[in-house]
Write a protein that binds this DNA or RNA. Structure first.
Lengths: 256, 256
DNA sequence: GCAGGCGTTTGATACAAATCAAGCCAAGCA
DNA sequence: TGCTTGGCTTGATTTGTATCAAACGCCTGC
């Protein structure tokens, strides 16, 4: 591994508190690898030998059943992939595919488990990462079970705005068919949901979306801090445990 | 805490490998409490001060939004509740309610976090529990996004059979309206889904379900080890990492 | 420039699920 | 016994979503 890579890895949340010698154990046999867009990194059901850490690019996790498939989440840097499977030393439940050119750190699963055994701080960091991921899926599940597709889209747009510059113009990060699957609908219905949001001041042109009436959009979307992982709840001070928040396409919470 | 309670707690997966002095730290200030059926243990958004360990009874975790609510999972002994929130020291994303009389061990969150810092084996056990929970929700999510309601019911019945005695008669563990919400449908549609499964040999009488044509039911359900957490995949030997499996109403995987 | 391909949009239709409204049934109780 | 209650079922209807089909726009490669 190159020195510049080591520096970047050092900054990952899961390695923040780790002693130097443990860091060496954890990253023993680790290497950074580059993948082109559209690469299948991992198929669901595969045994997992490496922990993947996404340093650059976007990766989609998706699931398949009976000739259907659905995008479960989309990860952006810096995120771990399949940490749960590594911790349990078991098969992956989701497939992973690069959506664009990616740079990924691959760490042998054994090294991760050994480092956890040797350093409680590292094991705690892993726990925090997993706890954040767990809560991410729970939020996602509430989103799917409690809202209809237009409401999900509206909240997605508001979340995009919140993690961006907060202006009234947001850019979609993915192809619409990918976004549709992530939001649990068909591409056709994503189109129609966008059309339905016209009356809330939403205008789409390619991947650029203009939100000209945030109040109306919020009235329809009814964003909720227990589902949508952004922005502190009304008037609270930022800085406490849960106010520091981070979004990865309705993905996971940021472990502290 | 009574000596008999201590013995039971000792057997919990997360305390299996823990040194005696750490066990004492972790359970400092812990106590067992009994709750009647229908008790709200925790409201979503509440700060979480205790880790709950369900020793007896059933607890439902549910989420709310905009006057709707949905059952996210149902836990049976022995399970931890809201471990993720305890690890991150943050607010709960789901409400918890007892479905029947329950016996619950309550451990101060501070004690858990301290014990994790002191003992890497305990921190690893927490990681495994969280990893199992994470994978449980992922399975649940795939179930919801990839299957229609009748398919979900069919798989639920097969899962019940698998964790039971494997006979052709299974007992539903919950009221039908709770089951309906858990499976992501209305009570009315649960009725209709049961009716639709008649042609696969499914007959319902109250909470007793007779499955007289497993082959037909499986043909419709198409159970998948990457969604339905029971039974080893075809012909594999039980005993390896993931074959030892355990179901809690499509809940979580058993941490080893 | 033009042809082809692919992602997207639009419309028509079919299907699935939620909702609304009765009615049923068994348990609890006066 | 008769009454009420709550959970469950059944039917009619509406709403939401998927599917099918066609057309459009855009980019690419020839």
């Amino acid at each position: 591994m190159r020195a510049s890579d080591i520096d970047r890895v050092r900054e990952l949340p899961i390695f923040a508190d780790v002693a130097p010698e443990i860091f060496r154990v954890a990253t023993a046999g680790a290497h950074v690898q580059r993948f082109p867009a559209g690469t299948m990194l991992l198929l669901e059901g595969d045994p997992v030998d490496f922990l993947y850490v996404l340093l650059e690019g976007q990766v989609e996790l998706h699931g398949t059943w009976n000739d259907h498939d659905t995008v479960m989440t989309i990860l952006r840097p810096v995120s771990t992939l399949i940490l749960a499977a590594v911790v349990l030393d078991t098969a992956a439940l989701m497939s992973a595919r690069t959506l664009e050119r990616c740079e990924i750190l691959m760490i042998p699963g054994d090294a991760i488990r050994t480092a956890m055994r040797l350093d409680s701080h590292f094991a705690m960091a892993v726990s925090r990462d997993l706890a954040g991921s767990y809560r991410g899926v729970v939020r996602n599940m509430k989103n799917i079970k409690l809202r209809n597709s237009t409401e999900r889209l509206a909240n997605y747009l508001l979340a995009l705005r919140a993690v961006g510059d907060g202006g009234s113009i947001v850019r979609l990060h993915h192809e619409k068919r990918v976004l549709a699957s992530l939001l649990g609908m068909t591409p056709e219905n994503l189109s129609r949901s966008f059309a339905a949001l016209n009356k809330c001041g939403v205008a789409v042109q390619g991947s650029v979306v203009t939100l000209s009436n945030i109040a109306a959009l919020e009235h329809l979307a009814k964003p909720d801090p227990l589902i949508d992982n952004y922005a502190p709840r009304g008037g609270e001070i930022v800085g406490d445990a849960d106010a520091e928040i981070w979004l990865s396409e309705h993905g996971r919470e940021k472990p502290r």
